[in-house]
Design a binder for these strands. Structure first.
Length: 267
DNA sequence: ATGGTCGGCTCCCGA
């Protein structure tokens, strides 16, 4: 049966709840993983989302910053979260679910952005980002027998040359520096993760999921980056059916600067 | 040309 997972950095789930509702009604994924919800669990708009058919909701939130949530049509269980770098941020949430006979674990991540200066000796936020992705190497796609794994989220790194509008011009820009892109690829290698979107899009093809608010003509300039990712264990690669990067969502009313990324598997 | 625009703990900070 087809199974669709979506990931979207929503940049305040309360402010953009109408966009989330529109997205769910129109695209109807089985699971939606949100990042930057920016609200504590008690203020998460769960009632509205449950009424749309997403009756199973896992939330890891905090006041004002960060925050991740996983909405599902299928029952969720074995919910866990890891406090990466032990700083108390809400940046990770992991759940289990079953789709027919297929057992799945889904990790939802919001990786630190890392500030502006790509030098940890003068920018602690960049150091935090590097420490975070170093710790992410421990997250394996093969952690549980007979359970396939999916890892999604705003990873705040564009790993490949065609994941940014200009590889040369962004080499010293946080999100595309070699220490970050090498680090992200190392997580994939050591954790046995496959990039489920790039598995369907040739590396020659540019692909972005984020366009800055600061560009006066984001569509015309098209200076995007692919910061949002869907990874999976290798057994899921033969099950890939399609993907969609919903670029139109960047042009919706009061948009997030990130757009939804969807992957459909035949499970 | 080192700007620009968003969000929320709003005259500042993080992204």
């Amino acid at each position: 049966m087809p199974f669709t997972i979506a990931t979207w950095n929503i940049n305040s789930v309360r402010l953009r709840l109408p966009l989330v509702e529109h997205f769910l009604r129109t695209y109807d994924p089985d699971v939606l993983c949100l990042q930057e919800t920016k609200c504590p669990k008690e203020l998460f708009p769960g009632t509205t989302l449950k009424a749309l058919g997403y009756e199973h909701i896992a939330v890891h939130g905090q006041k004002g910053y960060h925050g991740v949530a996983t909405l599902s049509k299928h029952p969720l269980f074995d919910e866990t979260r890891r406090d990466f770098c032990a700083v108390g941020d809400s940046r990770h949430l992991s759940v289990r679910l079953d789709v027919g006979a297929q057992r799945l674990r889904i990790h939802n991540f919001y990786v630190p952005a890392g500030g502006d200066e790509p030098d940890r000796t003068i920018n602690a936020k960049f150091g935090h980002k590097l420490d975070f992705i170093d710790e992410m190497r421990l997250v394996s796609a093969l952690s549980e027998p007979d359970v396939s794994s999916i890892l999604v989220g705003d990873l705040n790194i564009a790993p490949f040359e065609t994941d940014v509008w200009s590889h040369k011009q962004l080499l010293k820009i946080v999100s595309h520096t070699p220490v970050e892109t090498d680090g992200l690829i190392r997580i994939m290698t050591e954790g046995h993760w496959a990039d489920l979107v790039r598995a369907q899009v040739p590396l020659e093809q540019k692909l972005y999921t984020w366009w800055s608010y600061r560009a006066k003509d984001w569509r015309g300039a098209d200076k995007g980056r692919r910061l949002d990712h869907v990874w999976g264990s290798a057994d899921l690669v033969p099950r890939l059916a399609r993907y969609e990067v919903l670029k139109d969502a960047r042009g919706w009313e009061r948009p997030s600067d990130h757009v939804p990324v969807m992957v459909t598997l035949n499970l």
